[in-house]
């Protein structure tokens, strides 16, 4: 691995981490507000996180 690639991989991880963290925090807020809807919120959260993760992995492979 060359140095630019390592930096790129780090940037990808920062971006994906921020994205998934944001999803997680929003989902927590939503569950705290409406505990009875937690099942639906969790499902939506997992799907959104999985989509971001997919893009993150695709970028990691490109890096």
């Amino acid at each position: 691995m060359e140095i630019p690639q390592i930096i790129g991989a780090g940037l990808i991880v920062i971006g994906a981490g921020l994205g998934i963290g944001k999803i997680g925090s929003s989902a927590m807020d939503a569950i705290a507000r409406q505990p009875e809807a937690s099942g639906k919120i969790q499902t939506a959260m997992l799907i959104a996180a999985a989509l971001i993760e997919g893009i993150g992995f695709a970028a990691l492979f490109a890096a």
Partner: peptide
């Protein structure tokens, strides 16, 4: 494609 990458990479 994203299905494939996600499972494999994880």
């Amino acid at each position: 494609f994203s299905l494939m990458i996600r499972l494999y990479a994880n």
